[in-house]
């Protein structure tokens, strides 16, 4: 399988604290991967580095077929290159409708001039409706997204990510605050998405990770501690000591 994202030897520290310590990580172009680890293991910082929010002190982040370095690019440029990110807390634009939120995310030219001239075509609106049914929000298309429940906001955000059509999806705790039924639906969406793109899920909830049924990377103190199937890593003594044993 081709490598889509390659992180190698990355380190970053904040005020002397090493959040990421010589981390190396790879993911293929159509792969589902879960990242687990105790608090402070560097999961969120890892996402910040890949998406351009944080600049590492050392290391390389190489992206895509053309092997571009992501380190010199701004957040917006990285997003346009094909990296989508979902935050831990759902962040949708609450005073805008579900439809407008999805249209904002649709893969279109992002410059101001294109936005001024933009008129949603039939195909665009069709795509929006298709996504809305996929995330179960078809009936709420014209409601302000601030009126949605917590779980629905999570889905809307996932829907926006899919609308962006990224090659790599970084998802931070997608199941937080969801009911069991909602979790099941979320699992389905993520597994489906991973058929055509890379999906990285950061999650605390072991049960949810088990349901994803994918390769797992365990982070600890900013470095990879173990990698493999969930059963493989959970039987690793080091992993048990730092994470599961507590």
């Amino acid at each position: 399988m081709k490598t889509l994202l390659e992180v190698s030897g990355v380190s970053v520290s904040f005020d002397g604290f090493r959040a990421i310590n010589n981390l190396s990580f790879q993911i293929g172009s159509a792969e589902l991967r879960a990242i687990i680890g105790p608090n402070g293991a560097g999961k969120t910082t890892f996402m910040d580095i890949v998406t351009g929010k944080t600049r590492p002190d050392a290391g390389r982040v190489i992206w895509g077929d053309k092997s571009v370095s992501l380190l010199g690019l701004s957040e917006a440029q990285i997003a346009r290159a094909g990296v989508g990110r979902k935050f831990q807390r759902p962040t949708v634009f609450e005073d805008q409708t579900v439809r407008d939120n999805l249209i904002l995310a649709l893969k279109k030219p992002r410059d101001a001039w294109s936005a001024i001239l933009f008129r949603a075509s039939k195909a665009d609106l069709g795509r929006v409706e298709e996504l809305a049914s996929e995330i179960g929000l078809w009936e709420r298309l014209d409601d302000p997204s601030g009126a949605l429940s917590h779980g629905q906001k999570q889905w809307l955000e996932i829907g926006m990510l899919l609308a962006q059509d990224p090659q790599l999806l970084l998802v931070d705790e997608p199941a937080a605050g969801m009911t069991p039924a909602e979790r099941e639906q979320t699992t389905k969406i993520l597994v489906e998405a991973a058929k055509t793109r890379a999906v990285v899920v950061v999650e605390h909830d072991m049960e949810f990770v088990r349901r994803l049924n994918c390769k797992v990377t365990v982070l600890h103190e900013g470095a990879v501690l173990a990698e493999g199937s969930l059963d493989h890593v959970t039987s690793n003594q080091e992993v048990i000591d730092v994470y599961l044993g507590r």
Binding site: T51, S74, E75, A76, A79, R80, D95
Partner: peptide, 14 residues
């Protein structure tokens, strides 16, 4: 106006 960081991650140059 509502969330500058979020719209950046959608690829818009704020």
């Amino acid at each position: 106006r509502d969330n500058e960081a979020r719209i950046r991650f959608l690829g818009y140059s704020v």
